[in-house]
């Protein structure tokens, strides 16, 4: 278990609300993620999981409530949102690698543009992470030449190159062929073991059991339940969580 006494909260969300037009997408979200903690967010599709984590780095703007990232409040109209985003790595469902750049260029773009790192230094850093995700041999290729699983591992490496304090994963394995999923999850587990703070939206319940310190269950834009994975899977408190789990594990 995580020692919460020494850890500080890296992400603090209080009373956050968001609407799409009249539709209430998120309602009164409260969640703190401690340094080094791994939080898995699950729930039926359309429950606001992705929207919630996308608000943390302001890819989506929230309309009410407060979000603190490492003590700094993030707001939709803030000037230096880039500073926050450099501290927050993000991995998308559809990889979103830059198709007109080689794998290596995808990785060094951020450090070179944002931290003023030299190309040589950025390349060393990039190759280090590419080796960690076992794609170093493909560094000179273009993203479409790689399999989905390889692309997603590159996307993780790209986010890591910014040396983020917290990593957000938005259904990182949902767009992958079944045989590709394990490779990506392995990389994520390794990352978790190294102590990275992670917020992961996923349907991979095996991953949640293995890695998560807490599981957050969302439905209809609200957090319904927050629990330790063992408790959540063996003994979900809410009806909706029970229904969700039975549908998920029913087959």
């Amino acid at each position: 278990m995580l020692d919460t006494s020494a850890a500080r909260p890296l992400v603090e969300i209080t009373g956050m609300c968001k609407w799409y037009g009249e539709f209430s997408a998120l309602h009164d979200i409260n969640l703190s993620v401690m340094e080094g903690e791994k939080v898995v967010v699950c729930g039926p599709s359309g429950s606001g999981k992705s929207t919630m984590i996308r608000c943390i780095n302001q890819l989506e703007a929230h309309q009410k409530g407060k979000i603190l990232v490492d003590g700094t409040e993030v707001t939709p109209d803030m000037k230096n949102i880039e500073q926050i985003r450099r501290e927050v790595g993000m991995v998308f469902q559809s990889f979103n690698l830059f198709p007109h750049m080689t794998i290596l260029d995808n990785l060094i773009l951020g450090p070179m543009r944002n931290r003023g790192v030299s190309r040589k230094e950025a390349t060393d850093l990039a190759m280090h992470y590419l080796e960690r995700v076992q794609i170093a041999a493909q560094a000179a290729k273009y993203p479409p030449q790689l399999s989905g699983g390889q692309q997603q591992r590159v996307a993780i490496a790209r986010a890591l190159c910014m040396k983020p304090k917290v990593m957000l994963f938005d259904e990182p394995t949902s767009a992958l062929d079944p045989e590709m999923i394990a490779g990506v999850l392995d990389v994520m587990i390794e990352l978790a073991e190294d102590g990275m703070t992670m917020v992961v939206v996923t349907h991979e319940m095996g991953f949640a059991r293995k890695v998560a310190d807490r599981v957050v269950f969302m439905d209809e834009g609200e957090i319904i339940e927050v629990a330790h994975p063992e408790d959540f899977f063996s003994n979900p408190q809410s009806d909706r969580a029970q229904l969700f789990l039975s549908q998920l594990l029913g087959h």
Partner: peptide
């Protein structure tokens, strides 16, 4: 756009 913003590009 999102990926480019997410790595903190201006």
């Amino acid at each position: 756009w999102e990926a480019a913003r997410a790595i903190g590009l201006s």
